[in-house]
């Protein structure tokens, strides 16, 4: 086999693999679902001593996980490609959401309740970005949340919970919209790669 043939074959294979990875990379789904859930929590931060937002998260956490799982499953079935790392991603997402919930509850409506979940989700997203290896957007969104959490903790504003909910929701939805547009433009760019015999 000639050197040029080997190089061409490897290039073609990489294109096919990138396309498959691009199809599987639907982080926008989770971003948009959780961004909406987080933003919807904002009004609850204004009710009472934090009990209302606690109840909200007690209901929203399992529901959000279920919706995310169903949405991914339905997306995979629609495109006809199932991710091989699905269980690993699910474990990371479940861990970060549960950690966020536990920290939120442990803070009893104080600063830890506002900043703890933000940082837990941020760290989880950085971990996801690293595990997915090619998803810098996920890691950047995580970094942005960690920075926001630190800024809120240092600035100590009057209403840290509201700021955290609005800031995290905005970052998450923005990342979701960028991820969705990124996937669409990647699909527009890459036509089917011929690999005919």
């Amino acid at each position: 086999m000639a050197h040029a043939d080997a190089a061409t074959t490897l290039r073609e294979l990489e294109t096919v693999r990138q396309k498959a990875r691009g199809s599987l990379n639907a982080s926008w789904l989770a971003f948009l679902i959780w961004g909406t859930i987080v933003l919807a929590s904002a009004p609850f931060t204004q009710i009472g001593d934090g009990a209302a937002v606690g109840v909200y998260w007690m209901l929203a956490t399992p529901l959000g996980l279920l919706i995310t799982w169903r949405a991914y499953r339905s997306y995979e079935l629609r495109i006809g490609l199932v991710d091989r790392n699905e269980r690993l991603y699910a474990a990371i997402i479940a861990t970060m959401v549960v950690a966020a919930f536990v920290l939120g509850a442990a803070g009893q409506g104080g600063m830890l309740s506002a900043v703890g979940p933000l940082i837990a989700i941020g760290v989880g997203l950085v971990a996801l970005g690293v595990v997915k290896a090619r998803d810098l957007l996920v890691a950047f969104a995580g970094d942005a949340m960690i920075v926001l959490g630190i800024v809120i903790a240092v600035a100590d504003p009057d209403d840290p919970a509201l700021l955290a909910a609005l800031g995290q929701g905005a970052i998450t939805i923005l990342a979701g919209l960028i991820a969705l547009e990124r996937q669409r433009s990647s699909q527009r760019r890459s036509g089917p790669e011929p690999a005919k015999s």
Binding site: R17, G80, A195, K196
Partner: peptide, 20 residues
Amino acid sequence: AVLGEAERADFSYLRGALDL
């Protein structure tokens, strides 16, 4: 190569991705 990236792929996905 496609199957190396995924747990499984359906016939239609493979047909489209490889233009067959």
